[in-house]
Simulated scan of single mutants.
Amino acid sequence: MKPIFRIWIIMALLPLNNLLAQQLSPKDTIASTKVENLKFHYKQLIIPSALIAYGVIGLESDDLKLFNAIIKEEVNENIDSKITLDDFSQFAPAISVYALNFGGIKGKNNFKDRSIILATSYLLMGSSVYTLKNTTKVERPDKSSFNSFPSGHTANAFAGAEFLWQEYRDVSIWYGISGYLVATGTGMFRIYNDRHWFTDVVAGAGIGILSTKIAYWIFPYIDNHIFKSKKNVRSTMIAPFYNGNQMGVGMILNLK
């Protein structure tokens, strides 16, 4: 098995590592709607930090740049035509949370809370990706622009995958694993379509995971200080968007 495929398999199975790192207690039940159950633990930082660090080191490391070039060469030899599935698959894990709930499979948090969490995650992820793209100015493999690092599509997909994992891990870990598989596939397509280097994708994955984790950790503060008047909020709607060049998320609060 080639090293590249070993790395992708490891990234796809990240939820199993998360499960061990988070050390769920008996209080974390399926019926729970209190996001406070997700407590901060330094072990939860290991995987996303390592992914981000790999990408950042790759900005200056000749060895990692060479590895990027080798992967690009191998992929380009086998490309027949581009597959634009990644433009849509990046949103699939996050949308799945709402689809599952609509289908009657309840997750950890109610509609309003999880929407606020997802919006917070996208805000953190989007601002981080935008800042790094405009700071590092790495040329894309297809030489179309100088905003390759990190991969925004991959960050978006992994943010959604971690969101799906957190909301439905107590129902079945396979929901979370499926989200990570889709996110990993999104990253692979970004490389296949010659839009990103391997280091871009790895860093994007780490940023996405970490953004969602932070969103869950700080939600109690946001809920108590920004959305403290819960009686005034009737419903929340959140929807991602992509116009071919930009991506983001919109949130609408229906107030009394």
Rank of each mutant, 00 (worst) to 15 (best):
I238D: 01
F40T: 00
E36M: 04
M237S: 12
D200Y: 09
E139S: 06
N156C: 12
G248H: 11
G107Y: 06
K228H: 15
I214Q: 05
Q22N: 09
L181V: 15
S229L: 11
N254Q: 13
L132V: 01
L132T: 03
L118R: 03
L255H: 06
E77Q: 15
Q23L: 12
N76V: 02
G104A: 09
G58T: 06
N78T: 09
G160H: 04
L64P: 04
G204S: 07
Q90C: 07
A92G: 01
A119N: 05
F111W: 13
W8I: 15
A69R: 06
N109G: 01
T136D: 01
V171M: 02
L38F: 13
E74N: 09
T186Q: 01
E74Y: 05
S235F: 12
N37S: 04
F91T: 03
E167L: 02
I52W: 03
L24T: 14
L38P: 00
P141T: 07
T135P: 02
V138S: 00
H153C: 03
F241R: 10
E162D: 06
T33A: 09
N193C: 14
S148E: 09
L100M: 13
M251Q: 10
E73I: 00
I105R: 03
S61D: 15
F198H: 09
I209T: 03
T212G: 04
I83S: 10
A119E: 05
A99E: 07
M125V: 02
E60P: 00
A161C: 01
K34S: 11
K228F: 14
F111V: 08
Q22D: 13
P240V: 14
V182P: 00
T29L: 08
I9K: 11
I4P: 01
A12Q: 04
S151G: 07
I71C: 01
T29Y: 02
E74Q: 08
R234D: 14
Q22I: 15
H153N: 06
T236Q: 05
E60T: 15
I52M: 13
S115L: 12
G204M: 08
Y54F: 14
F146Q: 13
K213S: 08
F146K: 15
A239K: 08
M237T: 11
V202N: 03
K133H: 00
K231A: 14
Y192G: 07
E77A: 12
M247A: 13
A161F: 02
